[in-house]
Design a protein around this nucleic acid. Structure first.
Lengths: 301, 301
DNA sequence: ATGTCTTACGGAAGACGTAATAATA
DNA sequence: TATTATTACGTCTTCCGTAAGACAT
């Protein structure tokens, strides 16, 4: 049987094909890698790598061994991770929700990362309708969700902010504002606003569908829709205009709609929410994973 | 990642469920097993075994980890064995033959053992017809075979003896000898002998189908068959009698045939043969495996 | 009281780093 | 000559056996 350090040295060298980098990754000296590989080769009875001081490549036997050991190692790591996570309470099924389709890819990426870190815990992703943003969380149908902030409810914990999206105004394609490069919050005073109705706190509605412009002029409210597709139809048929995100243009593109960016509206803030009395270890772990992914994406850019 | 000794201690203890036996199998002290398991449990963050001084059982987490690690370990062992064997030239396909059906189970057992020792080497088993016992070996269709001894050919190596089978006489069910408890080689003088014809050395035929009894009386030879099933039919229809093994009674049982053990004939000797100029490493390895299996079976009995 | 798992301590094996050496482009 | 793999040697971690202790039946 192979020693742990032999397995690691072999797998890393098979990946890096460079003794120096292998040693660096494993935090040991290059001499150790050289000796370890040589020891394995004595045991196998044949060279595993063909090497000069300029190039390192796997031999046929080494190639095959690499396949086998890589898979064995993955099983071992996954099994160990599962055990550790189960012991830490991170197991079973985690149900996560999100409201904006442009966050869908992010959620799927997060779910993949989460599942590879915590093999014993499955993730179910589902959409949350804006007309009842807190219903699934409170009903116990979801453990955590990514939604448009800001909420302030005693039974719901407000987690970290995950993303910001610049705002845009959605208008009919033949609307007077449709040709503009940008719009202002002051423009809201001039046309009826299509809003959303449902189990939504008034303060949240006021944030997204204000009753007055920054200058204090009243904003006329038009019809209220339950589902998002109704909002699109109401706006398209000239019943009013409605604020949304710039990225909505890409996700809800229709010939009868136009999206014009706001010049003066703060971005929509997306963050995590979960029921305060149901913070499980797996919820904490998912929040952690998603936070790391987004901060890593930020540092990439 | 787990150390080699941790993996082995865990897997063995999960099998044995006993610290003492585990230590014995791994040739270490029981204290070492105890410490090693405790270390793993600290790492996982939960007990892997529920133990009193009377009983050791896996916990749920331990059970799951056992599944994963066992498979990982098997992959590692198989991969390493494959590499070692490939380096030693034991790879590709080994074709083995056997002539007597009562050796079929033994051959399959040997092939299984061989394949688990040498995962990179496949084994094909096929029957050899008695009328041309050396043809497939010489044609290169077989690498090694288990056949009735004795051969003495310059191009064929005679390997170790694998089995002995007591002889019996095959006669028609209504034959005068059919009711006897035992027969003697001297009885061969009284009835025509059904023999085999083909590419068979004369000295081999003389061993199995003698022309004279031990007392020197001539043995009358009747018809000669090519295939074994023809021998059965010829004997059944009264054309003669034919010597074979006692175990043939179990494998070729027919209402019109009877098998009577010889009281004075030496057993049939089964041994391995291979072409002298084509002894490959895999042939040697198979001979080794089969020898070990049969000597182990002997020591069991 | 016995069998079994756990803990404590000293010793030896061997994994490791440092540094000199060899080999290749 | 510069870069990289290999070898040599002393150090130090840590795995191990011995033996005494704890626990359950």
């Amino acid at each position: 049987m192979l020693e742990r350090y032999e397995l690691e040295a072999f797998l890393t060298l098979a990946e890096e094909l460079h003794f120096g980098r292998t040693a660096e990754r494993l935090r040991v000296s290059t001499g150790r890698i050289s000796q370890t590989i040589k020891k394995m080769e004595r045991r196998v009875g044949a060279p595993l790598f063909e090497r000069t001081s300029r190039k390192v490549v796997l031999t046929a036997i080494g190639e095959r061994l690499h396949e086998d050991l890589r898979q064995a190692n993955r099983l071992m790591e996954a099994g160990l991770a599962r055990a550790v996570n189960t012991a830490a309470g991170i197991h079973g099924t985690l149900r996560v929700g999100y409201s904006a389709p442009w966050n869908g890819n992010l959620m799927i990426k997060a779910a993949d990362a989460f599942h590879s870190r915590h093999p014993g815990c499955d993730v179910h992703i589902q959409e949350v309708q804006l007309h009842d943003p807190l219903g699934p969380l409170r009903a116990g149908d979801l453990d955590v969700q990514l939604t448009e902030f800001t909420f302030d409810e005693p039974d719901i914990t407000t987690g970290p902010v995950i993303a910001h999206e610049p705002r845009a105004l959605m208008v009919p394609a033949d609307h007077p504002l449709a040709g503009r490069e940008a719009v202002s919050l002051e423009d809201l005073a001039d046309f009826p606003l299509v809003t959303i109705a449902g189990a939504i706190p008034q303060y949240w509605l006021d944030q997204h569908y204000p009753s007055r412009t920054p200058a204090g002029r009243p904003v006329p409210h038009g019809p209220a829709a339950t589902y998002w597709q109704e909002v699109l139809s109401l706006v398209a048929t000239g019943k009013g205009i409605s604020p949304t995100c710039v990225r909505a243009a890409a996700y809800y593109s229709r010939p009868d709609l136009a999206f014009i960016p706001f010049s003066d509206a703060p971005p929509v803030v997306y963050g995590l929410l979960w029921p305060t009395d149901r913070v499980t270890a797996r919820v904490r772990a998912f929040v952690q994973t998603l936070s790391e992914i987004t901060s890593a994406a930020l540092s990439d850019a």
